[in-house]
Design a protein around this nucleic acid. Structure first.
Lengths: 340, 340
DNA sequence: TTGTAGGCGTTATCAT
DNA sequence: ATGATAACGCCTACAA
């Protein structure tokens, strides 16, 4: 039978209240007794009971704030699904979610949302913009006792509690590895990134190109274009690129805008000789994979990211568990397993 | 604030006990009142509170039995890790695990273990052998009110509660898809299966070969050998196969014995021209992938299988949630993401 | 058939 | 500084 606070209390001849105060560092206990209780807890291998904690926590009405740059970005749909799954589970603990979404990457807007939320939440999950102003606001939150968990995109020098998202560098390396296998290690590559202003996109390119150098010396990057995460721009830029470099035999799509890039490849009439590898399992990617243009996609479990972030937040509030980073695995999708 | 039994009781002017009896179908309630309570619960959107249930369930001391054919099979190490993770989480609910492992696929031995466990557990998780005798024993369990969940390998016509494991057919299709991409859709293939006596192995081969027919008509299966899940046999059989069919340009390893197959490929001196695709992320597979022999592996989240099975079992016992099948996704691993 | 009361483990409040 | 008690939501034995 598992050890309870009650048992420890009996063994130490003190009340349950005292044991609780010791084990949760609430003070107001004589050092001597505190030491005894701690020792006994250790000896008996005490492990706090989640269900009990959960029940007691209901009275606290915790609120977790969530701010996402998700408006109009398909990728976040799955993140939100994961968040809602987490929400269901923590509802039993009396923990509520307060979700706000924003369009684009304007630090000003994000700051405003953070300000507005500050007195309403006990913890913030933030899809942060990597700017100094945001970093400082996060520091302010942390100082004021409101922990911040970054999701999907980390914010440098922010002192956030933990990061939940993908390793963009590893993602790029995996994309490179697939292309190496598909091409027999020989390719002239065009890269279609989102924008050079987003850290994660650059990290993917970096991972991709270092892998090429290390393992596939005959895979060369000929050109890099920006889609600005937009299909139309992706289409136009890709058309131009394919004109500039008729020898291109592979394209790595780093971020959004895949549909535009693929349309350009299809219309060029060179689809059969151009290997396209994309990122994320979105509707567009699935569609163009089914058309035979995209051969493989590297995905990072967006559902799991949302779910994990909420879980970690709740665990921190209820059980006082300091969370660790969650780095999503790189999932490789091809036509045969894209719908799973 | 979430709705509780207490609230429903007040609204209906009955006691909490009555509401509990209605909502859990325990009988001994006038139909009239039962209807009223149900209506009110529906109206208020009552959702039972996990924590409360969990706490009350502790007094019951549930035991979940687990029987695995895991002795000496590396694949199950990860399944067990998942089981242990689940064990940690359900410990709070007072649910205990009773795990037994066996070597090989002897129905007799499995029957003995099932018999021995019968009066000790309230639910059984079984890595079942697909034989009639086992199916009947499972039926007997179910009849006697001890639900059975099959894990990793299903048992036909057993009437088990649910199945947690992989879709072997889809696994084979995915392996075929990868090989299609790696080979440009043109290959002469040797298949190294475990044994034709195991259903799952045959299903993988079936999925693989139907995919070839559908999508890659120029991928032909030249030969099928059996490793009997053994490295030595795998080595010998592969050597013979490579002699018989010098034109072989790809090998699909369906089950265990990968190390033997790979050694034969390496020693043949034809490693550069033979594309090897394997199954499961085991130490052997990782090792031979790093040596450059295995190009890709299709895996089925063994950790998740163990974890999910335990979760479903506990949810059934505590919350009375009838579980659904869990079919693991097909994860494609290449050198760049095999260690994640 | 229905209600009451106590307990599961933890925490907060109030009294000492 | 410490103890006693009630409460969180659910379940069950027992009383009515």
């Amino acid at each position: 039978m598992a050890v309870t606070i009650k048992q420890i209390a009996e063994e130490c001849n003190v009340s349950r209240g005292t044991v609780d105060r010791v084990l949760n560092n609430r003070g107001r206990v004589r050092d001597e007794i505190a030491a005894l209780v701690r020792e006994k807890a250790e000896e008996l291998g005490y492990r706090p009971n989640m269900a009990g904690k959960a029940l007691a926590a209901r009275k606290k009405n915790y609120v977790i704030g969530i701010i996402l740059t998700s408006e109009g970005v398909e990728f976040f749909d799955e993140v939100l699904n994961g968040i809602h799954k987490g929400q269901e589970e923590i509802a039993d603990y009396g923990v509520t979610l307060l979700v706000r979404s924003m369009k684009g990457y304007h630090a000003e807007r994000q700051l405003a949302l953070m300000e507005e939320m500050k007195d309403k939440v006990q913890l913030l999950i933030l899809n942060g913009i990597n700017e100094e102003r945001i970093a400082q606001k996060i520091q302010e939150y942390m100082r004021d006792g409101i922990p911040v968990i970054t999701i999907n995109a980390d914010v440098e020098n922010s002192g956030r509690l933990c990061y939940v998202g993908c390793d963009f560098n590893a993602s790029g390396r995996t994309a490179g590895g697939i292309l190496g296998l598909l091409s027999g290690g020989r390719a002239t590559i065009g890269i279609a990134t989102g924008t050079v202003k987003v850290l994660g996109h650059n990290q993917r390119i970096h991972g991709f190109s270092s892998l090429c150098k290390e393992r596939y010396p005959r895979m060369k990057i000929a050109d890099i274009i920006e889609t600005n995460d937009d299909d139309e721009a992706g289409y136009e830029q890709t058309c131009l690129m394919l004109k500039r470099y008729p020898e291109i035999s592979a394209i790595y799509i780093v971020a959004a805008g895949a549909a535009g890039v693929c349309r350009a490849v299809e219309e060029s009439g060179r689809a059969a000789s151009i290997l396209v590898v994309a990122s994320d399992n979105t509707n567009s990617v699935r569609e163009w994979m089914k058309k035979g243009i995209i051969r493989a996609a590297v995905c990072q479990n967006p559902y799991g990211q949302g779910y994990r972030a909420v879980q970690r937040a709740a665990d921190y509030l209820i059980q006082n568990i300091t969370p660790t980073d969650y780095i999503a695995k790189n999932e490789i999708r091809i036509l045969e397993n894209i719908d799973e």
